[in-house]
Simulated assay, not measured.
Amino acid sequence: MNSPMHRLGFNHYGAGHAEEIGNTVDYAMSPHVDLSIFTILTQNESGLEVRGPEGEWICVPPVQDALFVFLGDYLQRWTNGLYVACEHRVRQVRTQRLSIQYKHRPGHDAVVSPLDRFVGEGKPARYGPFDTGGQYVSFLKSLLGSG
């Protein structure tokens, strides 16, 4: 964590966009966990859904003057699964939906793997090392179909 990364993003989901591009699935953003330590989000309209413990999708309604905070993949890896990253997606929207998100991540020089306090006898490491530089870039390219 010598030089952590901060990302502030703005997302726009247009009403009817799915039909315009021929989308055949029932979501606007595919299910995923964020490659971050945590994410903070606010939204003006419904659309965000999180995967519940039984595998069901739960709607996260917008709440005025409130922020939604969820854990990312890196925290799950560091804690060897003690804390679980929040799988989420955005369902198709019928109105213009805007969201603002802040993601906190380690710098590109970090390698994320379970910390010693979360592994040991009877608690083997559940995750291998993840390079937040090269592996992260390769992962993003694979999502975009360019890698």
Rank of each mutant, 00 (worst) to 15 (best):
M1I: 10
M1P: 04
S3R: 13
G9T: 15
F10S: 14
A28S: 15
V33W: 03
V33D: 10
S36A: 14
I37S: 15
F38Y: 15
I40S: 11
L41Y: 05
E45P: 07
P53I: 06
E54G: 04
G55L: 04
E56D: 15
E56T: 13
W57M: 07
I58N: 03
C59K: 12
Q64V: 11
D65I: 11
A66F: 01
F68P: 07
V69C: 05
V69Q: 02
V69R: 05
F70Y: 14
G72Q: 02
D73G: 00
Y74Q: 14
Y74L: 10
Y74T: 06
L75D: 06
L75N: 03
Q76E: 15
R77P: 01
N80F: 12
G81S: 09
V84N: 01
C86S: 04
H88C: 08
H88Y: 05
H88V: 08
Q92E: 08
R94N: 13
Q96I: 07
R97T: 10
Q101R: 08
K103F: 13
H104L: 13
P106N: 06
P106D: 05
H108Q: 12
D109Y: 01
V111H: 04
S113C: 10
R117F: 08
T132W: 09
G134T: 13
V137K: 01
K141A: 13
S146V: 15
